[in-house]
Design a protein around this nucleic acid. Structure first.
Length: 521
DNA sequence: TATTATT
């Protein structure tokens, strides 16, 4: 299983900086120690060591081994192919020392591999060796960018010393940016953002070793000069926090979906160039590869640019002029592991993302205000929760797009009605065991059984889906039932989809009442 | 002018 062969000698050639294998977007390798070592007191907040007699907490997704040193460093591992699990990664990292814990990050609801992991060696020294040998040094099969091996954010958070630099000249390199910021402190990381073609996007991230160094760079550099070719003066500010970034993405997506600007012309069938068609097929092939646990060829990865294009193709311009953020009570005892991918994927499926959003359409409002300023009273003033809920939902949508890229490419109006049933014989008017059956209300009028099923497939095996129709008019009554084969999937679906906004309505997703409860004697 | 992810 040694797909990755790390030459032993590399670790010892410290006299020159090894060239990263990819010219494109890489962090500048810095003359400073690669690993900024947090002080001990920052690392360990509890002076009490773990009891020697108790086993470490071990979960199914965790490889956990021997005791670690007090001063061990948790490493973040990035750019991992999504088909590699702990057991596959272990050999690669074991060569630097005994591993205390290695866990691949998975989405809490869908179980989707996030493409990164945490790794703690028993010995601090092993972590340093591993970072020196691996960080940015090798690209794992199927990845387009080199592996990341660096201290996890939890070891020493970087948000408050990381700068976003905008309005750069597109010709400026990591080195240029480094020189520009060097006078203000020790730079730990310096990255110019680039597109897939390697062209600079005219902005960069610069991480200093301390907040005050970063602050002094802002004071001195922000607005201080205008780069040749830039439309305004240099921007230097603290990088967005995770939350801000999520909100920003949501807004971008809103733009993509044509909600901010209803006048924007929607893509039409002319968008279906042969390229797009090829892209669809490729992505569909990739979906199959992933779902079968196979290896992803490099060309089958999902660069964000492609996903964006998918997004752009899926809008149908459903008007959205209000948003509400609801709090739901998370079901107690949601402890089952995330549901798995459906084992069989539909060959031709219906547009999932159309008109879906968890987004606030108002423009010119501060993102955070947007969340709570929609003409409705906030459901709660316990602030982070509503935003978290929305973000979780949004994350789910992104993953949906990633898992079913081809799905979203089906033009609006060409729904499953024109294609063979995908679950055929399995679909009956049926129910799963108690706890597996969901009641869904506020469905879009145009949703039929299949759309309903598609919407819930990501959370597990859907054994039946039924939208109730008005006999007289043959119109949907906008509610229906979905049954899974296990309660965990049902709970995951509730978590992700209850309150999910579609058009102007929010889905209500809850467990179906058991029969006897609805018919009291 | 906002990244490939941080339990």
């Amino acid at each position: 299983m040694a797909r990755f062969t790390q030459s032993e000698s590399r670790r010892h050639q410290q006299q020159h900086h090894p060239q990263p294998p990819h010219p494109a977007p890489v962090n500048l390798l810095l003359p400073q120690p690669l690993l900024l070592i947090p002080h001990q007191h920052q690392l360990d907040h509890s002076p009490v060591p773990k009891p020697m007699n108790g086993p470490e907490t071990v979960s199914m997704h965790t490889d956990s081994g021997a005791m670690k040193d007090q001063d061990a460093i948790k490493l973040f591992i990035g750019q991992i192919p999504r088909n590699l699990e702990e057991k596959d990664l272990k050999p690669l990292f074991e060569q630097f020392g005994k591993i205390h814990e290695l866990s691949v990050l998975k989405d809490r609801y869908t179980g989707m591999h996030k493409g990164c992991a945490f790794l703690t060696y028993c010995a601090r020294e092993s972590a340093i060796k591993a970072q020196n040998a691996l960080h940015e040094q090798k690209t794992l099969p199927g990845m387009t960018r080199p592996i990341q091996v660096k201290p996890a954010d939890s070891e020493c958070r970087g948000e408050d010393r990381k700068l976003f630099v905008g309005m750069l000249n597109k010709q400026q390199t990591e080195e240029d940016v480094y020189r520009l910021f060097e006078p203000y402190g020790a730079i730990e990381e310096c990255t110019v953002l680039r597109g897939p073609d390697g062209n600079s996007k005219g902005c960069a991230f610069v991480k200093f070793s301390t907040h005050s160094e970063a602050q002094s760079a802002i004071s001195s550099l922000h607005g201080s000069q205008t780069m040749p070719g830039a439309s305004s003066s240099l921007v230097v500010k603290f990088a967005d926090t995770d939350k801000e970034r999520t909100l920003r993405r949501m807004q971008q997506m809103a733009g993509q979906f044509g909600m901010f600007n209803p006048s924007v012309s929607l893509p039409t069938f002319t968008s279906y160039s042969s390229y797009t068609h090829a892209l669809m097929q490729q992505q569909q092939a990739a979906v199959m590869a992933v779902s079968q646990g196979g290896y992803l060829a490099p060309s089958l990865s999902f660069p964000s640019a492609q996903l964006h294009q998918v997004g752009a193709l899926t809008m149908n311009g459903l008007p959205l002029n209000s948003v509400s953020v609801s709090l739901y009570s998370p079901p107690a005892g949601l402890s089952s592991p995330p549901s798995t991918m459906p084992s069989s994927l539909p060959s031709l499926v219906t547009p999932m993302m159309n008109g879906y959003t968890g987004l606030a359409p108002q423009a010119n409002v501060h993102p955070l205000e947007t969340l709570y300023t929609n003409g409705l009273p906030p459901y709660s003033t316990q602030s982070p929760t509503a935003a978290d809920t929305l973000q979780q939902t949004f994350t789910g949508v992104q993953q949906y797009t990633a898992i079913y890229p081809a799905t979203t490419l089906t033009p609006v109006g060409q729904s499953l009605a024109q294609h063979p049933q995908v679950i055929g014989q399995q679909q009956r008017e049926g129910e799963g065991p108690e706890g597996c059956n969901l009641f869904i209300y506020h469905l879009p009028q145009e949703f039929g059984d299949n759309e309903l099923m598609q919407m819930f497939l990501p959370f597990g095996n859907v054994i039946s889906s039924k939208v109730f129709m008005d006999r007289a008019t043959n119109q949907s009554k906008c509610f229906g039932f979905v049954s899974f084969d296990n309660p965990g999937s049902a709970q995951a679906a509730i978590q992700a989809m209850n309150g999910f906004q579609i058009g102007m309505k929010r889905l209500k997703v809850q467990l179906k009442r058991p029969k006897d409860a609805s018919r009291p004697y």
